[in-house]
Design a protein around this nucleic acid. Structure first.
Lengths: 157, 157
DNA sequence: AGTGAAATATATAGACC
DNA sequence: GGTCTATATATTTCACT
């Protein structure tokens, strides 16, 4: 059920759902220029092929008491694949870490971390992140504000 | 129409929609332990108060030809608010920059940048990012893989 | 692969507690 | 703020092209 490449209609569907993940299928179909049934089939195919990975409400962290967002730049002692995976498995268990990217260069990982306040962030840092397996250094920067928020990727019209 | 604090039911609604932004209202209501109509009212109130900022499909960048994701760590020459805003206004116009956070410390901004290939990324870097107003230094790191992807924030049960 | 109509399910508004 | 009922929409299936 995997199509090789996406056509213009698929791209319009993706653009619509990336912009508004709760748009009704009828409206997605209208924007894509087809009727609802084939549109729904395409959406399902995009979901099943993994091109659409999921749908998520963007919730204001402050509303749930998360006043602190931090980026943590982590360097490891060893970049052997086993050691990288050991670190990944460790952070997978930490709920404060919401996203983690493996990078090339001096910094091995960048983590987006949330916490209710500075004190609980410090506790997380000293108890869970700095002592993680294989960690050489951790540099943290507090987020002052989110300057731009365009989730996803550009989709050409 | 603004409630001061969120109750248990609101938190369950947020947890459900953060996990699956296309969950039907009926299922959101079931999980929250209430019936559909009051659940829908709560969802609308959460949307209107800005606690739910939006809903977005998580689209695999590779499917659209974006093989490159880069984190750019930008330091500015001046941290005066006017200069910070000038930089923010510049990057607001750049479609390659999907997210931008202002940070404390030596690094002033972290940017998530996507590109179709390394060549177009280099072009973006030398034509649009490094020459941006007030930029002192730009350090870039290529993303090798996304190790963890839990959008949003932890919501206690 | 798309259309149009029919069936099923969901969202939404209203009356009431 | 909640439930129950009724209606309007949307989703989903199906026969057909």
């Amino acid at each position: 059920m995997s199509r090789g490449r996406l056509d213009e209609i698929d791209r319009r569907i993706l653009a619509s759902l990336q912009e508004n993940g709760r748009m009704t299928n009828v409206e997605v179909a209208e924007r894509a220029g087809i009727t609802a049934p084939p549109c729904l089939r395409r959406v399902r195919a995009l979901e099943e092929s993994g091109i659409i990975r999921g749908y998520h409400a963007d919730v204001d962290p402050a509303a749930l008491g998360y006043t602190i967002t931090v980026f943590a730049l982590v360097s490891l002692k060893s970049q052997a694949e086993d050691d990288l995976q050991a670190f990944e498995q460790h952070i997978a268990k930490l709920p404060e870490v919401r996203e983690c990217f493996m990078l090339n260069g001096e910094i091995d990982f960048v983590l987006r971390v949330v916490a209710q306040d500075l004190q609980s962030f410090q506790r997380f840092l000293t108890s869970n992140l700095t002592p993680a397996p294989n960690v050489a250094s951790v540099k943290t920067s507090l987020v002052i504000r989110k300057s731009k928020n365009d989730p996803g990727v550009p989709i050409p019209a």
